[in-house]
Amino acid sequence: MTLLIDRRVINGSKIDGKLADDMTKAGLDRIRSCIQCGTCTGSCPAGRRTAYRTRQLIRKALLGLREEVLSDPNLWLCSTCGTCTERCPRKIDVTEAILYLRNLSCQAGYMRPEHQGVSHKLIETGHAVPIDDPKWSKMREELGLDPLPPTVHSYPKAVKEIQHIIKQTGFDKLVNYKESKKDGKT
């Protein structure tokens, strides 16, 4: 008979206690009150069909297994539905915690190419989903709308404003956006 629980010794050198401190500073202090009840995992529609386990991720974050948490592809299976946050008996904002860990994951260099692509579109056009094919403008016209909406698409100056913000926050560097692509049409 085998034990269903894997026995695992956490090596001290892997532990980075600063991770929980960082989360506390980011306003997620209630995470320290987690009792590992598993309501989050039990409520999770993504966890029902994948190996993503919210409780496990939170536990690892509290233990300070920084590298293991930030490099875990399961971190990107949350659809941000917010059910865990609503049901947590300790009132932990679990979804915000996941988003915070994703921010750190991106800073550590773990970013999906698809997500970089969406970010590049935002930088180039101001829309994460822009009109990047004339068929969408044609469809607008068939519906009696202007070919371009009155958004950043109609105001080149507004795109510059978005790019100004992105330079201020360093988002272009975070998502590995190359300056030379800036003039490229999407």
Partner: peptide, 22 residues
Amino acid sequence: VEMKGASCCPAPGVIKSFDKDT
């Protein structure tokens, strides 16, 4: 009333996942 020059909101699931300040 039109919001002239408005952009992506930006998307909470993607852009907020990458960098909250942006």
